[in-house]
Amino acid sequence: MAESIDAHSGGHVAADNEHGDHSPPTRRKQALAGLGVAAGILILAWFVAGRAGLSDVGKGGINTSLLPKVGDEAPDFVAVSPMGDVVHLSDFKGQPVWLNFWGAWCPPCRAEMPDIQAAYEQLGPQGLTLLAISLGDKPSEAINFAELNGVTFDILLDPDRSLTSPTYPIYNFPTHIFIDENGIVQKIVLAEMSADQAIEAAQSILPEQTASTNTRQ
């Protein structure tokens, strides 16, 4: 920065002399003045930007953090079973868990349901637990839709989305989160999956020996 002032002022010395500046300051003085001005601007900017909320800038957009991150421990949540029992995620500690947040109101979720069932038929016997949490549905509609699709995995209910949202704020339907038996998030899929893709994604949380007998990779 100092250089640019210096070079700049130097370039104009001749022109300024033409205009009869009485005592052209020395280069060093100019450089010091330039540095002083820069420092002044930067200090003033600190106050201006601070008043405009500098400390909040940078947390949104690509830096938004909503869901737990891959590699983190999956936080607990509560939902209700079709029988009306309260179910905690922590109840399944020690098992690989596949969370599917869906809604019967959501066309991609409906389109995906038979594929999820097909994947579960293959993965269930290997010890995988699938919890399909219906968000924002009338409970009867969610249960009926699951029955129509011959679902054999657990359906959980969160009709007004208030139970899961503190730890799992979901903005995408469907959202798939794969948690290994140690409770660590291994994979997050924010898209509809085919049965094959679901099986492939679940490999990341299945115990080694079963994974190797049934690998698709």
């Binding site: 601007i41 003033l44 830096n63």
Partner: peptide, 19 residues
């Protein structure tokens, strides 16, 4: 990258003052 976004905003404030 959060810091870079913040730094960018701070420098924008400095540029505004200079302008």
């Amino acid at each position: 990258m959060e810091g870079m976004v913040r730094l960018s905003f701070y420098l924008f404030a400095a540029a505004s003052i200079a302008v």
